[in-house]
């Protein structure tokens, strides 16, 4: 049986020279990130280039995704913060595409890598911080020490709140990457059972793998949704005082 973790190995597709000791080669991870962006762009172009009053199936799906994100933003952040919809929608589509493309055979799940998801999480949190600082100015720092708290508690409370804030991108990353990794490893291991049990016994794991793949598709959407919702929560925390 193949090693189930080999599917997460990053392979260089186009070797490029190092820049300041950093390998900037085009890898399978980069390829699937580009594919994710391309598939999303083509889908939205095809779905929306001829907008109709009575929407086609594709147009309905595209509008549904937009309405989902818009509704989520209105509920979590506030109806007056619609300028953040493109940012939140980009995150949702990028994560959802990564999760879904990873389910195709011989593909690569970029959302299962700590580096990819981690940098996206850090970027999301930084954007919320910048938005918060721009809106509330130095008042944003009251998130770490709420008004009315006794000053004597500051040496204990502030480090705890700072670490609690710094752990946000980490918990976002762990949640998404580990979920994706576990799902793919399970599929690979059970696929190995089909080969081992042969023609007679292999049907049981095959049926199981079909159910698991359907389950993983649901998880792919759910994870993207949760990731987006949490980003909205962090954005709301940054923009509004507690």
């Amino acid at each position: 049986m193949h090693n189930p973790t080999l599917q997460f190995k990053i392979k260089e597709i186009v070797d490029l020279p190092q820049v300041n000791g950093v390998n900037i080669s085009f890898t399978n991870s980069s390829l699937f990130m580009c594919l994710g962006v391309l598939v999303t762009a083509v889908f939205f172009y095809v779905a929306l280039h001829k907008k109709q009053k009575y929407p086609t199936k594709l147009q309905s799906v595209a509008e549904m995704v937009y309405e989902l994100i818009r509704g989520m933003m209105a509920e979590m952040v506030g109806p007056s913060e619609m300028k953040f919809v493109p940012f939140i929608m980009t995150i949702f589509l990028f994560v959802a595409m990564g999760n879904l493309l990873g389910l195709l055979p011989y593909s690569f799940t970029y959302t299962s890598h700590f580096a990819a998801v981690g940098s996206m999480s850090v970027l999301s949190i930084l954007i919320t911080v910048v938005a918060g600082l721009k809106r509330r100015g130095l008042n944003w720092f009251t998130n770490f020490f709420p008004k009315g708290t006794p000053i004597a508690l500051a040496p204990i409370l502030v480090p705890i709140e700072v670490i609690s804030f710094c752990s946000k991108p980490l918990s976002l990353t762990i949640r998404l990457s580990v979920n994706m990794m576990v799902g793919h490893i399970m599929i690979k291991v059970i696929a190995g059972f089909i080969y081992d049990l042969g023609f007679i016994g292999g049907w049981i794991p095959l049926l199981f793998i079909i159910c698991l793949t359907i389950f993983e598709m649901a998880i792919a959407f759910l994870q993207a949704y949760v990731y987006t919702i949490l980003t909205c929560v962090y954005l709301s925390d940054a923009l509004h005082a507690h």
């Binding site: 670490i163 752990s167 980490l170 918990s171 976002l172 762990i174 949640r175 580990v178 979920n179």
Partner: peptide
């Protein structure tokens, strides 16, 4: 349970790294 674990781990790993 999964969310609770990731929240807990996030804090612990972050503290350790700092």
């Amino acid at each position: 349970a999964f969310n609770v674990v990731s929240e807990l781990l996030g804090g612990i790993i972050c503290g350790f790294l700092i």
